[in-house]
Design a protein around this nucleic acid. Structure first.
Lengths: 109, 109
DNA sequence: CAGCGCTATTCAGCGTTACTATGTACTGGT
DNA sequence: ACCAGTACATAGTAACGCTGAATAGCGCTG
């Protein structure tokens, strides 16, 4: 993966996953697959699982273990109230940045 | 500064500074002041200087020492060819992310 | 039934970045 | 002599994503 993408993903990836979980509960493997579909083809599985551990420890998600027909049990993550609040903050921060960057890009300085 | 902003700035801040330098050469103290004007009120001076050292070592900028009327000599940074190429890459990467996030925000999933 | 592929999670070690806190140095005004 | 403003620098820390590998369950095929 490019160095720039790696750095830009810091913080962003967490927002993306929270936003996905807002739409529907999901488990790690599924999230990784979804990310790849969305064009984030180079995101390592390990990265996603580490992220999920973090947001669980911060109390942004509820976790439920669900047996799978194929392979080991899934850990299904659901966004809770704290998570929704955190996501709202994320959108505010992102919005601020995106607005500044948009102006910069259009040569408005 | 918020944790989210700190993480989102990773990679972004470098792009912002490169974009500024594309518009006009500048020196560290000046860049810090400009950032504060743009609403990045909490970015520490040390952060900017460290960033400038990095992009200089990567060969993205040319540096010229210019005596100042007030205080020690200024190090004026000018974006060079490599820097412009790096900035173009940054906009591509940023554009990709901004597009995905824009969709996510609008509930398009 | 052995091996392979897919599903699913976990972990150790690493590199990069921004933050905090501090230090150095030069100039002009009181 | 002192202090505020200008200007640059650096050591140490925390957070995040990446690499690479390991572990484990299940179904299918030779």
């Amino acid at each position: 993966m490019g160095r720039q993408m790696t750095e830009l993903l810091k913080g962003t990836l967490e927002g993306i996953v929270l936003a996905l979980l807002e739409a529907r509960p999901a488990y790690g493997y599924e999230i990784t697959a979804w990310l790849r579909e969305q064009g984030f083809s180079d995101i390592a599985e390990g990265t996603v699982y580490a992220l999920l551990v973090r947001i669980e420890q911060r109390g942004l998600v509820d976790v439920e273990k669900v047996p799978s027909e194929k392979g080991p049990p899934r850990k299904v993550y659901t966004l809770n109230a704290r998570g929704r609040s955190d996501l709202a903050e994320f959108w505010t921060t992102w919005g601020f940045l995106a607005e500044r960057l948009g102006r910069l890009r259009d040569g408005d300085r």
